[in-house]
Simulated assay, not measured.
Amino acid sequence: MTVTTRRSGSADRHGILALMQASRGDDLSPEERAERGFVQGVMDESTLTRLQEGSGVFVAEEDGELAGFAMSSLPGMFASGPAKETVDAVAALAPAGTRFFLYGPVAVDPRFQGRGVMTALLTALSRDLAPDYDLGSAFVEVANAKSIAVHRHYGMDEAARFSIGEREYVVFTFDPTEFAERSG
């Protein structure tokens, strides 16, 4: 079977929101969440619609079944929280005039993990956004050991760190043209 990727549309919203909720790991211990990875935050349909109409939400499918998603957003969409802190960190570090986007959250259905779905999603997202943006950025909570390892595996730069309350985050950045050129 072949995994395909595309920009998501309104018909995908229910599946994306369900996979996002299932990927939060709320029923796991902190150790299990760190090992398996987790998606933070909650999202409603109106926020998902804004992201889809903006820089985009990408889905991976196999035979019409949702295998995973990768969201992207633009600076200014979020007034507070980790996304806002990430925007501030990247804006302070990047050269003046750098056009950047945020990527994430990303979730892959456990049945499809280890099959290149995240690579395919990151490649599709980068191919779509690379012509208009110089830099992609993401924030990952330090407690999410799986996600930290994945971002390091992809060779993304650990550009900054910040804390909100008791939670510590790493800001990863990457050149989307680098990922757009992958065969995925």
Rank of each mutant, 00 (worst) to 15 (best):
R36L: 14
S29R: 15
A22N: 08
K84N: 15
R50W: 12
E166K: 15
L125G: 01
L122Q: 11
G76Y: 13
A124E: 10
A91K: 05
R24N: 04
A92I: 03
P95R: 13
R182L: 07
T173R: 10
R161Y: 03
E166C: 09
S183K: 14
V140F: 06
V150G: 01
T173Q: 14
R111T: 00
K84F: 15
Y154V: 03
V171C: 03
D27E: 15
I16V: 10
F101T: 02
E158G: 09
S73T: 08
G114H: 10
E168S: 13
S29P: 14
K84C: 14
Q113L: 12
H151A: 07
R6M: 09
S137L: 10
S72Q: 06
Y103R: 00
F78G: 03
E31C: 02
D157A: 14
L74P: 02
L102P: 05
S72G: 03
R115W: 05
D63M: 04
P176C: 07
Q52L: 09
E65K: 08
F139H: 12
A143Q: 02
L129Q: 09
T86P: 04
V170R: 06
R6I: 13
S10D: 12
G81I: 04
D88I: 03
G104Y: 05
P105Q: 15
A70Y: 01
E61L: 05
L135P: 01
N144V: 02
G104Q: 06
P105F: 01
Q52F: 07
G116I: 07
G54D: 08
D88A: 14
M20N: 13
V90Y: 08
L93P: 07
E62S: 03
V140G: 01
D44H: 15
M71I: 00
